[in-house]
Design a protein around this nucleic acid. Structure first.
Lengths: 134, 134
DNA sequence: CATTGACCTTCCCCTTATGGTAAGGTTGAG
DNA sequence: CTCAACCTTACCATAAGGGGAAGGTCAATG
């Protein structure tokens, strides 16, 4: 299987397949002409990587997860620990984003949104310490 | 005011102050020796930028917001429109992250987390289409 | 007057994960 | 033999920074 076919079979772009090889996530065989050759196992690996990425795991985690997948004597606690850390990171990010959303909603709600220049949003940016001029 | 002092006054690192200049957000004066010189207005600009960044606006939006701030004949509706688009983008991102969190929580909850290899998390990654082998 | 430390300057590399493009080689069909 | 559709490597770019080197400047101290 050539890289194009592997891309279609796995849903991973040719570009990213080569990148994953570069960071040592897989090592396809080569024909005498240097063409990469992928087997069903390689496609499985690519699909595994894709699943990890869709769940937001960074590449370092994906690498670790791949190692655990391949290691038949792994402990499920390792996997769970990694996953829990990732969940925690995602929750923190959501908390940050929600704080931004809440602040922005308050500002937008206070803005008339008409053709006049007065705008609480701009005022808030210009007075970042919350020092309101009353 | 030198760049170091401007950095302390604005809470923006020297590195980023130079970067913001590079992308034309401000243009400090220079001494004869080439040192950047910042006035109170520049510090105001930097604080404005910092406030935008803390609310998650991308630099392109920051640039636009700066322009609106400086434009005394702006319409507040422009500002509000930009803000609303940003809020929408943030909400979408939160929705994505929450979907990941939900999926990961279900997997983690199903994982025993002991010293045995069996692990639903790994199994899920290896079978990305949800094709469970029963 | 020289040294020293704290500034400042520009320039380049690194990050994450991904896309694009260009120059050139291979293959298979017609 | 040619042409399209592959493939290869190599480089550039992204967003928003951080790190650091090499070299210039300035003020205070000895």
């Amino acid at each position: 299987m050539n890289i194009g076919e592997a891309a279609r079979a796995s849903g991973i772009s040719r570009k990213m397949i080569r990148y994953y090889e570069e960071i040592a996530l897989l090592e396809p065989a080569r024909t005498v002409n240097g063409y990469r050759v992928y087997g069903p196992q390689d496609v499985q690996t690519l699909r595994f990587i894709g699943a990890c990425r869709r769940l937001g795991f960074p590449m370092t985690d994906v690498k670790a997860l791949l190692g655990m997948w391949r290691n038949r004597s792994r402990s499920s606690v390792e996997v769970k620990r990694l996953t829990d850390r990732h969940i925690t990171a995602l929750r923190e990010r959501v908390t940050e984003l929600n704080a931004m959303i809440t602040a922005l909603e308050a500002l937008a709600q206070a803005c008339d949104g008409d053709d006049r220049p007065h705008c609480p949003i701009i005022t808030a940016m210009a007075n970042p310490d919350g020092s309101h001029t009353r």
